[in-house]
């Protein structure tokens, strides 16, 4: 039996973090999820990370320079914990022996606004 979904008033508040990744090798969705979870667990610990409710919403492949791969993505997290997630993402520097860097582009309350403002900004 499937659980009935909670009414909107009982659901937790969410924020969406738009970010970009520059890496030496191509990264997939699962790699990004592993990297972010590991970083949050390392800096904030298991107890604190359990409050973040992290969920990778979507990633975009961007034009890359030779030797550097660019990705953009949107990560869902608990409202109020976005600065902690941002700090954890900032401290990521390596993955499987290759250099990686995460830059937070901004926060938003909706996926639509995050996409329009940070991922595909209007000219």
């Amino acid at each position: 039996m499937k659980l009935k979904i909670l009414p909107p008033t009982l659901r937790g508040d969410k924020r969406y973090i738009a970010f970009e990744v520059i890496s030496q090798n191509h990264l997939f969705r699962d790699d990004l999820i592993n990297i972010i979870w590991d970083a949050c667990l390392k800096i904030h610990g298991e107890c604190e990370t359990s409050k973040f409710r992290l969920w990778m919403m979507r990633i975009w492949d961007c034009p890359s320079n030779p030797g550097n791969f660019f990705l953009k993505g949107i990560l869902q997290c608990n409202r109020g914990d976005e600065e902690k997630v941002r700090a954890a993402m900032c401290l990521i520097h390596h993955y499987k022996g290759n250099r990686v860097v995460f830059h937070t582009l901004g926060f938003s309350g909706t996926i639509r606004a995050a996409t329009q403002n940070f991922i595909k900004p209007m000219a």
Binding site: A87, V101, T104
Partner: peptide, 18 residues
């Protein structure tokens, strides 16, 4: 010393908060 060490100012502020 490389572009992989650079962070945005707001990211550094978030780490400083730690």
């Amino acid at each position: 010393s490389s572009i992989y060490d650079l962070r945005t100012p707001r990211d550094l502020v978030a780490v400083a908060n730690c």
